[in-house]
Design a protein around this nucleic acid. Sequence first.
DNA 1: GAGCTCTGGTCAAACGATTTACCAAACCCC
DNA 2: GGGGTTTGGTAAATCGTTTGACCAGAGCTC
Lengths: 344, 344
Amino acid sequence: MAKTPKTSMRDVAAAAGVSVTTVSHVLNDVPGKRITADTRDRVRAVAQELGYRHNHLARGLRLGRSQTLALVSDVIATTPFAGQMVLGAQEAAAKVGWVLMLVNTSRDPALEAREIRSLLERQVDGFLYATMFHRIVEVPELLVDTPTVLLDARSASGSVSSVVPDEVSGGRTAVEELVRHGHRRIGFLTNVDDIPATAGRLEGYRQALAAAGIALDETLVAADTSDSYGGERAARRLLTRTDRPTGIFCFSDRMAMGAYHVAAELGLRIPQDLSVVGFDNQAFVADGLRPELTTLALPHYEMGVWAVEQLLQEMDLAAPVTPSHQSLPCPIVRRSSVGPPGPG
Amino acid sequence: MAKTPKTSMRDVAAAAGVSVTTVSHVLNDVPGKRITADTRDRVRAVAQELGYRHNHLARGLRLGRSQTLALVSDVIATTPFAGQMVLGAQEAAAKVGWVLMLVNTSRDPALEAREIRSLLERQVDGFLYATMFHRIVEVPELLVDTPTVLLDARSASGSVSSVVPDEVSGGRTAVEELVRHGHRRIGFLTNVDDIPATAGRLEGYRQALAAAGIALDETLVAADTSDSYGGERAARRLLTRTDRPTGIFCFSDRMAMGAYHVAAELGLRIPQDLSVVGFDNQAFVADGLRPELTTLALPHYEMGVWAVEQLLQEMDLAAPVTPSHQSLPCPIVRRSSVGPPGPG
DNA sequence: GAGCTCTGGTCAAACGATTTACCAAACCCC
DNA sequence: GGGGTTTGGTAAATCGTTTGACCAGAGCTC
């Protein structure tokens, strides 16, 4: 860890026998500046030799921007797919040479304010305000005059751009998959929480049934907690009926996992006796079940990318932009849990 | 997004009728500076009123450090527990007012070099070099004279500090749990990959057997891929024997999931006929199985915290430090998959 | 009242870039 | 050879802090 004394443009300039200005012009390839190829080469060679490295802090100070984005989220880590969102954002930022600062606020408003303030002091140019599952939030007061995009969240006021999964089309796709295989009695294991995903996927379920000319049977919709135990309970209610559904769409892979347990218990084979579609494409769950679970993937990576690209674009425009709200599709991941309805 | 013109110390100084120096002294609570309470209050009031906000870029430039850490990792997101590590690091940094920049390199050396260079240009003070599962790596040339700590990785040369899970004690703990319940024939579903976790957990398995006075039976160690299919194959090899083990320790929860499938197929009840211990405490897997899986948790959060604290400490000392290598314990998470061996 | 020490500040020089002016020499045209 | 233009740069101000050096006035001592 020998503290190598850092080389600045001044050092390069001195060694190359030119002014700092020239070094700056050369190293930044400033267009429209007339500098002989000879000088250019010399400056570059010297910079290379001295191990010159740009000082982004100094540049940021002068330019008034840091080329840095912040991702602040309520709970970065409690959901296993959070990483994909962060990854998408980070990669999109890296592509244009920006970097991402990461902060987690644990839903603590005081902590959140403190952290945002800290990021603002670091002259962060824009914010991604993310929640780790699709929610309705309001963007913190502190951020009102810094460019901000909502990630996996929508704002009640609609005042800033946002990107969320398209829950409705996701639900529709799931049910269409069952319909396509010939199912007509299709159950829905839904979630009791009042979140956009619940309403959206239910709406998708309705739409798909309607499109297939299947009458909605409210008793085939069973709500419970979104974990595997909720899945068990809800599945048991549906599958112990004499007119049990031949296919079920589950709000989450975890609920689907519960449904698998109940099916095994009742001696129902998947997919011969019962087809199942999940949601989330949860790593190590969907592909660990037997048969592997057909499910819908949340577009976390894509949302991360979209949010950064939108943010960069909004920051480019000096003028205030009209916010744009995007829903990204949830692609279906076909595995082996869906088949034609049994003779039953 | 009205670009509010930023207020600087100069503005505050002018409005308060003092010099910039005084403002700096007051706002930073510089010790040993004599300033009347009256002036202090006035400066603070004015700063508050004008909405003054520190400019960390300018300070960083002056001070030569940014109070920023970078977490560079090979694959941030492909493992669901990665988040815990990032979270631990971020929270430890936040506690002392530092922030974390995040970069993912996808195991691409060219990309890695580019990103590290970019972070270095931003005057990042220290690096966390993380891998998303315990590996042996060498720290990139570029980082040799910037403080760096390895996270979930160890370096071959041992030249920088590192923190990893204690695989040996983890393996031992798992097997001890089975021994404690009275098991004497204990199988090990291990992994074929040549990584520290494989050797470490096997060693732990050996140690626990030896401590219990149980002779090692090599045929009870079945190696396969670490996913659920590998678990199925390995479990089938062990459980179809006439002298099948009464308890098995699985390299991963995913392998344990495979073992559950085989047990169900063979009509073996867990834990009455077979006890199972997993590893990883994988979200939504361990607690989604029936019965819920007893397993070992990887100390990802704690490793993140340790790494940041170590890094901060090493940066404090100007002198070169002798690197410290830490193994953190993997705590057991008891659920319902372990019981006394059956009469069989 | 000369000489000291405090008190409560201020001045100006960094830190390392970018950018707006400006300029000397060379060249061109008639 | 006088005036204008192009070429290839340079000087200096600036971004917003921190900090080491300095200083005027008040109070104390003898």
